[in-house]
Every structure is written in C-alpha cells, then in structure tokens.
Design a protein around this nucleic acid. Structure first.
Lengths: 336, 336
DNA sequence: GTGAAAGCGCTAACAC
DNA sequence: GTGTTAGCGCTTTCAC
C-alpha cells in the first residue's frame, strides 16, 4: 500500500497524490482530481509512511522524553502531562526511563539519534553542555525540563523550587511551627539546592534560627525519607514539631517512620511534602504539599520545542520559571 | 554525517561501510579495511539513520504501547516493566496513553501505523478482531496484554485473574471472614469478569453463601471504591467484615470511606486489593493485595512479539496465563 | 494543473 | 574482498 498504488488506482501520477496529501497553500489542482485521489486513498485505506516522508527532509513527528521516571514518581506525572500535549499536537513520544543512570541515558540518546527524533525533552542525570551541544549539532532540538545544565545553550523549563520551598516553610510558620525539620533532596540537583535555599531563606525572613541538627540529607526516595526521620527522632523528639520533606515520596517515608514510633500525623507532627503526585491526594493522611505545575510545565516545554524547530528559532534561549502552589490537605495542623 | 561521508573518509565505497555496520556472518573483508571504516565512523561520530535502514526492508526498532495508563495506575507499573525489557533489547517504545478512550486509541494506532512500528502491545478499550486484523495485514505485529479481544488471532498475555481472586478470597476466609463484600471491576473487561468469578467460585468452594447486597459495581477508580464502600456501609455495617476490592486504587477509596466513617483498618474491617502497585507497599496501612506478575508479563509479551516477527511465526497464537501471588501486608486481620 | 525524475540514507544483489 | 547500482516510499524541483 504505497503512494504508487494510490496513484495507479486514481489514474494520476504519484506527485499528484503527494500534492493532495500535503495540501500546500499555493498548490492548485482540479477539484475532481483531488476527489479521485481522496477516494483512492479511502478505498485502499492508505496511510503514508512517515519514515519515507521524513527521509526527504521532513520531520519524524517523534519526540524523545528522557527522565529518571521510576526513581521519583513525580516524573510519571510530568511524563503523562507531556504525553498529553504531544498527543494533541500529533506527536509520538518515545519514553526513555533513565532511572537516573547516566549510562542508560546515553544509550537512550543514541537510540533517539538513530531514530532521528525531532526533539529530546530531558531531565538529565548528569549530561553536560558538551553532550547537549553534540545533540544540537546533529539537528536535534533539546529542551531541558526540571533540571538545568550549566551554561547549556538550549531552552529550559522549571518549577520555581525556591518559591515552593518558601511557600511550604512559611505555611508551617504561619501554623506556629518554629522548629521545622528539613529533609533535603539530592544537593547535586538544582531542585534540591533551590528547595533547601527556600527553606533557609524563609527561616531567616521570619527571624527563626537554623538548627543544623534537624536538617537531614535525603535523596527523594521513600526509604531515605524513612531513615532520615528515624535519625531525626533519635536526635531528640522535642527538637522539631514539623518536617518539610523535599518531595512527597520522602514525606510518605517520614510519616511511616513517625507512625512506627507511635506518633500521629498531624496531631504529633506536621508533615509537608513537595511535588503533589496523584497519590498524595489519596494517601492517609492526605498530604499537604507544594504542587508543581506539571500541565503548565508540559505546555511550556512543548512550546519551547515548537519555537526551537520553527524557521527562525530565538537566539536567546528562554529559561521558564513556573510558580508552584501550596496544596493544603491533612498532614499539617496549627500548633496551638 | 551520512554513510557516504564515512566512506569518503575511510577511502572505501558505501557498501563496504554498510558491511561493517551490519556484520553479516558470511561477509568477509580485510581486517585493515574494517579498521579504517571503524575509525572513520569513530572520528565522524557517525550514527546510522534508522529510518533509512528500515525503509530498505528493515525494522524500525520501535514498539508501540497502547494502554489506559492513567486510568488505572497499574498500567504505569506494566508499562515500565515493558519499557525495561524493550530497553535491554534495544527497542524504543512509543507510549500511547489511551485513557480508556477508544477514539484516542484509534488516533494513536494511526500514528503508530504511520511510524511503521514493528509491533503494537495493546490493552484495548474496545477494539475488535477486525481492527486487529487490519493492523496485522499492514505487517504490524499485535500482542494483547492484560485484556483479550474476542477471537483475535494474535498472541495474548494475561495474569490469571481468576486465580488471583481465589487467592484473595481464600485468604480472607482463612482469616475466618465469612461475610466478604466485593467491589467489582468493570464487567465489560476480562479481568473484571474473571475476578468476580474467582470470588464467587471460592465462596462456593467454601460453602459460603453469596450475598448480592454486599457485591457492589466498581470501575477501578478511587472515587468509585469510595462511593461503593459508602453504599456498603449504608446497607448495614454488620453485613460484612471484609472487602475484596478488584484493584488497589478502589481499595484505597474503600479504606478512606471506612475511615471517614470512623472505622479502623484492619481492626474493624479487613481490606484486600488487587494489582500490587508500588504505592500499595508504602500506603497507610500497607495494602494486602494480589500481585500481578508485571515483570513476567512484560517478558512474555516481548517474547511473543519476537516470536511473531521471526522468520517462521507460530500459526497457533499463544495465550499465556501467568500466576498471581498473594502479598500479605497490613490491611487484613484474623477475625477471631 | 499535472507528470517525470532526482534524491533523502541506506541495504543488497550483482559485478568485478 | 570491494565497488556499482537499483530501489525502499516519499517530496520537490522542473518541464510541459
């Protein structure tokens, strides 16, 4: 079922078929010719081959998405937000779960290059400017999502992690909490550092002292949230009344650790997370958290991609910073 | 960066380059020629174009995955299990979230046909044998996962839903529960019907009466789990001591509904789910459930795919049925 | 308005 | 052993 067969059936040449397929503005043709072709297409159930189309200079209509998806469930939220806008725009999306493994990331990039995808949306686990430049030199548009790359000359879209951390911290303070423990994200990644800074800045802004003994290193995993909270408990139960966890998954770990110590949430301790994954809305207790604007992120990412592949892409690569939003549910309470 | 440039740099013809690229068994060549080519490839950082390769009769190396992913989070488990085996085998996976919408499914199928994917792994929301046959006639291998299509002449892989439901029901009975409520899945889908049957059969096997008033219709969503449980409560609190929910998501809804009525799990009611999603292992309480063998399913699906695209695909299309496994956690207790 | 033909990057049959 | 060439399915000049 090729364009040739359609041409034969319609009694025209293949270029005519191609013309009706592509509908260019200044391409005039007799209406009955078009009809004939359309009918032949219909009858043969013909669907053009995108590989062949793209080989002749066109686009593949595929976008690659690379992210540490299963590491942090937040990325399944983000990936499906992106899938959704790609669907609406007629793009296919090749999903590459890097698991945070740089080798896996590179293997996937190789696959995407082979497939000549139109673009790659990536939350990288450690790629550098040079890696990105090579991709770009291959004609593949790269959009950074949620994680920056130093000096990268390509568009990037983030949630305002600093703002989010400020919102969370301030909320706890407004609830009269003064000793707020903090479980960090990995400090190797932008979001981790920004969230820490937001916490610190908000404490300072409210003239609250920073107590390093209630700041624990985390890595966005459930088990780390659990173990960090255990450490917190061993460090002295009275040293804090609330915990701000740098993502929801760790917050669940924290809640569990507290419960295992016979504590109740939010009666004994208030817990706030970050991300707002789907499960945070149905967990017990439902988690108060900072929502990342995933849908908006997906949209902005896609728009950046479109702009980049347009005839005249902007020289100045945008860095979009999207506002987060506090979502109040059940895991925090007013202290007194 | 094409094969031509590599050839020029290595001082050989393009067919020689093609030969070293493809390494056929009976293709001999001088070692130094191969070396030269390899070096040129290396120096130019050449990566062959899969579109062009596949156009010339080859495979695209892409598999499409269609499933109602965000409808039931179980499918995110399944999809990443599949992604994982595809990764290992060098396949790219085009993820298509149908949301259970047949139109979306069809649009995606069109996209996958255009992209000339090697195969489609599908959990369909309503495609019929005819739709599948058309795909197959287009040279696209179709593998059914988790959901059957009547009389379809293509391989299929399922979890043994009947067995799973038996395991869950029997477990509750072993815990001395005799009045076990049941929240069904959609009865339009295979898994829904089989799970119901497993429940009914096990009741009968244990000479327990079926009480239709404690069997409620569900649809695999959280909110339905919640509302069905509310109905159950209004029907009479004493009429049941346990609820078997046809998937984990509804189980969470049920737990919530019970808690909103001031009940405790598992003290007041035992709850068992089905699927074993990641979140079930970290929820409060951690959910006792029936685990679907997702990794094994993914493997079997992939193997069926490979067999189908092999030189001599089996005429008889296999139906693989995989055993489920009871995962005991915290949401059930012995009645007395 | 429509058709013929070149060529996208590659593989494979056939020469040499 | 290696090169030449046709052709995969399509788009796009360039003729007519």
């Amino acid at each position: 079922m090729t364009i040739r067969e359609v041409a034969k059936r319609a009694g025209v040449s293949i270029s005519t078929v191609s013309r009706v397929l592509n509908e260019r503005p200044n391409d005039y043709m007799r209406e009955d010719t078009r009809e004939k072709v359309l009918q032949a297409i219909e009858e043969l159930n013909y669907i053009p081959d995108r590989r062949a189309q793209s080989l002749r200079g066109g686009k593949t209509g595929i976008i690659g998405l690379i992210a540490p998806i299963r590491l942090n469930p937040f990325y399944v939220e983000l990936s499906y937000a992106i899938e959704n806008v790609c669907y609406k725009e007629g793009y296919g999306i090749l999903v590459c779960n890097s698991k945070g493994d740089i080798n896996r990331e590179r293997t996937y990039i190789d696959l995407l290059v082979r497939q000549k995808v139109d673009g790659i949306i990536i939350t990288t686990a450690g790629l550098k400017k040079g890696d990105l430049d090579e991709l770009i030199s291959r004609g593949i548009t790269v959009i950074l999502a949620d994680e920056d790359v130093l000096e990268a000359n390509t568009p990037a879209v983030f949630a305002n992690n600093h703002l989010g951390a400020c919102q969370a911290t301030q909320y706890l303070i407004d609830l009269e909490h003064e000793r707020i423990a903090f479980i960090t994200g990995p400090l190797t990644v932008l979001s981790g550092r920004d969230r820490l800074k937001g916490y610190l800045d908000t404490l300072k802004k409210n003239s609250l002292e920073v107590d390093k003994s209630i700041i624990k290193k985390g890595n966005y995993t459930y088990s780390k949230g659990y173990s960090a909270t255990q450490k917190l408990m061993r460090g002295g139960e009275g040293k804090f009344t609330a915990i701000f966890c740098c993502n929801d998954l760790m917050a669940f770990g924290a809640i569990r650790a507290l419960q295992d110590n016979g504590k109740k949430i939010p009666q004994d301790y208030s817990i706030i997370g970050f991300d707002d994954m789907y499960f945070s809305s149905i967990s017990n207790p439902q988690l108060t958290t900072v929502a990342q604007p995933v849908d908006k992120m997906a949209l902005k990412v896609f728009k950046a991609f479109k702009r980049e592949i347009s005839d005249r892409p902007p020289l100045k690569k945008v860095h979009v910073l999207l506002d987060t939003k506090l979502v109040i549910r059940e895991s925090c309470r007013k202290l007194r």
